[in-house]
Nucleic acid binder design. Structure first.
Lengths: 330, 330
DNA sequence: TTATAATAAGGAATCGATTACACATCAATT
DNA sequence: AATTGATGTGTAATCGATTCCTTATTATAA
């Protein structure tokens, strides 16, 4: 591997001068600069980032902590982040918690020891230890998808999105609306979306039946399938006419079960999700859902991160907009 | 940030001893070791990876070059890789070429300057410059998805997979089989799969009509839609009865167009894809496809990488198995 | 002509680890 | 009692950059 010293020797200058030439920093004669650059070209020399970051405390790496690496949401967000930061010469270091809260904490520590310049967390839960660790973080930190106290947060407008969706059902004349959710450990998805559903029903004077509400174990299609099964079983004789699932995958699972049982969608049961998964447009019937524009969320988060890195001060909370996509399932 | 020197001072030993205690390397009395570990615990000290990697030439990072960051294939592969390497304490540095061959070369250089311990490339094309740069790479290098000369490659069995799929159509009595492909710059997807299709038709004495073959501009759903449109237009009066699309997304696009035009699938036209996208199971009719098990491919590649990092010698080419999933679209 | 400032380049310290080498102690072996 | 080997710890060099501090050379102003 060629080092700055090799280049210096070849150009008959000191490594100080090479460094200055490369960083456009301090005086270097045009003559020498050209000589150096030529050699750099020829050798394909690239400075060792380890050495640089040891010295400068900057690594050009943004650490991202994902709950799950291979989901549509994650990869869209990562895409958006990468799009923005790569233009500024930053790289992305990915970690995957596999939905294990302990790993969130572990990775925050780890990323710091790797000298990342900033950390973006796609949080799925909030707990005391997590907040403590985040408070100790010395680099710019942003939470995406959950609002964390005293932490710069970029959040989806879960409450209004879920209200709108519930209202859509009501507008279409539904009065018995079921709900497929996830555990409340996830404040944004598990709590806020459910609260919006409950509030909207109440505001419209509609009954909330326990049998119509089911929380899946995870965000999977199977979990949606199972939830729908449970809801139908528990509400024999008083079936809901619509179901609001908090994710598209769960909605797809629910549809799957309904189709298997010979129900007509949306005739016997209207269905909606959240997330605008690609699949939602191509299943039959196409799924009414809400587009959170995850890629744009990633971009916005990334820009905030860059601002922080440039010591601009940024607002503590940014709420993203959403778009209700009305399709054939409702 | 606490450094090894701080720990050394607090424990009243030299930093040498601290380093030895942390790395279980050389003699350290039980007494001192405990003292050091306790302080490390309390302070939450983590060694600076920049300093470590500057000194040891190892960074604990595997660089991955993806053609597109937010595709099902990419994220499944990354998941598989991460699953394996994270257990060994490695992190993943992601780069996205956005299908730009120049960026492949650029990122290979960049990753090396970042001192990555190994590089995994999800190649989509093969060109002279790429091969040259790869030849200069000084760290373990693996290509996934394309076979590159003199490079450790993990490849899908595109040829046999595509043969099997074509044969399936023939078995079901189809004689007029159309093909939706991509450009030949992509040897695995664009060339091999097409060759397998052509060979299989020929072997079975079936006519190959130019009007039945169309190459989409990219891998998108829209591109599949457009391709199907072209095929139907060009082969008026002698329509194919089956279409083999080289990716699931393209197959979905093709189905979309057929449905719009009122064709029955598979009655008027059978359809198949490759890739086992989640969506393929949930569209109507469900799509016959081939599962390449990308996650497992990622795992296998990662294990090869770990072997290389441990100086075990590995076979230059590994061909993966696949599974034909027969569903309702054929 | 001399003082001053701008330009150009090098010397050496520094970042935070690892590790070769040296040295001291102590127990076991001859 | 002398030699040997195992154990424990420290000193200092090193990795490859950046940057503060000097010094030398020109160009400009007084």
């Amino acid at each position: 591997m060629t080092t700055i010293n090799d280049i210096a020797k070849m150009a008959n200058v000191s490594r100080t001068t090479v460094s200055r030439a490369l960083n456009n920093n301090g005086y270097v004669s045009e003559d020498v600069r050209k000589r150096i650059m030529k050699i750099v070209e020829e050798t394909g020399y690239m400075p060792s980032v380890s050495a640089q970051s040891l010295r400068t405390k900057r690594s050009g790496v943004i650490g991202i902590i994902l709950p799950k690496i291979s989901t549509e949401t994650s990869s869209r967000v990562v895409k958006g982040i990468n799009e923005v930061v790569s233009k500024e010469g930053f790289q992305i270091l990915l970690t995957d918690t596999e939905l294990n809260p302990k790993k969130e904490v572990e990775y925050i520590r780890l990323l710091q020891s790797r000298q990342v310049d900033g950390i973006i967390l796609l949080a799925t839960n909030v707990n005391k230890e997590l907040l403590n660790v985040i408070n100790d973080v010395k680099v710019p930190f942003i939470s995406l998808g959950q609002e964390l106290p005293n932490v710069t947060s970029v959040v989806y407008d879960d409450y209004h999105a879920a209200c709108d969706m519930t209202n859509l059902f009501i507008q279409r004349g539904h009065e018995k609306i079921a709900f497929i959710g996830v555990g409340e450990e996830d404040p944004a998805v598990g709590h806020t979306r459910k609260q919006a559903y409950l509030d909207t029903l109440q505001k419209n004077g509609l009954t909330v039946k326990d049998e119509w509400i089911h929380e899946g174990g995870d965000f999977s299609i199977e979990s949606g399938y199972e939830s729908m099964k449970q809801i139908l079983k528990k509400s024999q004789g008083n079936l809901p006419t619509a179901t609001f699932a908090v994710t598209d995958r769960m909605a797809v699972g629910a549809m799957e079960y309904l189709k298997e049982q010979g129900y007509n969608i949306p005739g016997d049961m209207a269905i909606s999700g959240i997330g605008a998964a690609v699949m939602s447009a191509y299943i039959t019937p196409s799924l009414t859902t809400i587009d959170y524009n995850n890629k744009e969320a990633g971009r916005i988060t990334a820009r905030l991160m860059l601002d922080k890195l440039n010591n601009k001060n940024v607002s503590e909370k940014s709420t993203l907009s959403y778009r209700l996509i009305s399709r054939d399932s409702v």
